[in-house]
Design a binder for these strands. Structure first.
Lengths: 152, 152
DNA sequence: CCGACTTTTCAGAAATTTCTGAAGTCTCGG
DNA sequence: CCGAGACTTCAGAAATTTCTGAAAAGTCGG
């Protein structure tokens, strides 16, 4: 038990869950490597070896993980290769990035409201939709604050 | 302004946003029809006409929307066709269904923790991950309660 | 029960997403 | 500056997802 093989399995399963959560396949697998590695930081080449994937697809995955702020590039410790690691607030960041969708929903509802007449059934439904997403958007900052406090 | 064409555009845009949020394309478009229709309820045939899609794909979309609880089948008002409509608590339901992902993350983290040795860097990272999702899962019921109260 | 109409199912087609491999670019040590 | 190694880009291949169309099944009024 607790051997390398079991860890690899757990990592791949976690990656599949991340895909459920909206990440692209290779980004998810790459993130799983960052979670499960023994080392403080990893290089693109190490990830490619670990996943048996091409350097190209790993490069793309790293780029997107950097963009959403889940990993960070480390000040190079003299090596020629770039080192990356999971950021401390990665999970809160991932959650927040999904809230972009909430904002988009809010705007979509507002657009629908503008396109319908008051009193229209559609108008009413869209108003309810907007109310819900407005509520959510208002609550989430406080939620994340509570997390950061509790996690100090 | 506020004509049919503008509404159709808003509906299709909203559908694209729903796709961002994780729904399948046809399910999203179908849901948009439920939102934007003038009528109290709609039939599968009407949806197919509106979307210019096959009866088959509409049937599949309706099935999945029923499964997640976003729409409901109405007690048939004497007609031969099945009537459906958006459920009142559709948006809260949609949000809740996404929380399934949170639970899956929690379990994936736990599995990883079990597969690594205490003190391992990976063990620590996974523990942080689990803490975050456990926190989220704990907060969400209260969040939805606040919504239901405010929305009474 | 029958017949007309609607819905469901499912195999295959179409479209989209995702990955690879190779060429090009960049960086750093020497 | 040059050469070696590492990273990035991108066109095309591969895999997956999604949609359609036709056949089967179900349902209701008569």
């Amino acid at each position: 038990m607790n051997d390398r093989h079991e860890q690899w399995q757990a990592a791949e399963r976690l990656a599949l869950t991340l895909v459920e959560g909206g990440l692209q396949r290779m980004s998810a697998r790459t993130l799983a490597v960052f979670l499960f590695t023994d080392q403080e930081s990893v290089t693109a080449g190490e990830i490619a070896d670990r996943l048996e994937a091409s350097a190209g697809s790993v490069s793309g995955a790293i780029k997107s993980l950097l963009t959403v702020g889940l990993i960070e590039r480390l000040p190079a410790p003299g090596s020629r290769r770039e080192h990356y690691r999971l950021r401390d607030d990665a999970w809160a960041t991932l959650f927040t990035s999904q809230n972009t969708v909430i904002q988009a929903m809010l705007q979509a509802a507002a657009a629908g409201i503008a396109a319908t007449e008051t009193g229209d059934p559609a108008h009413q439904r869209l108003t309810q939709m907007r109310a819900f997403y407005a509520f959510l958007l208002g609550e989430l900052p406080a939620l994340l604050n509570r997390w950061h406090e509790q996690n100090t």
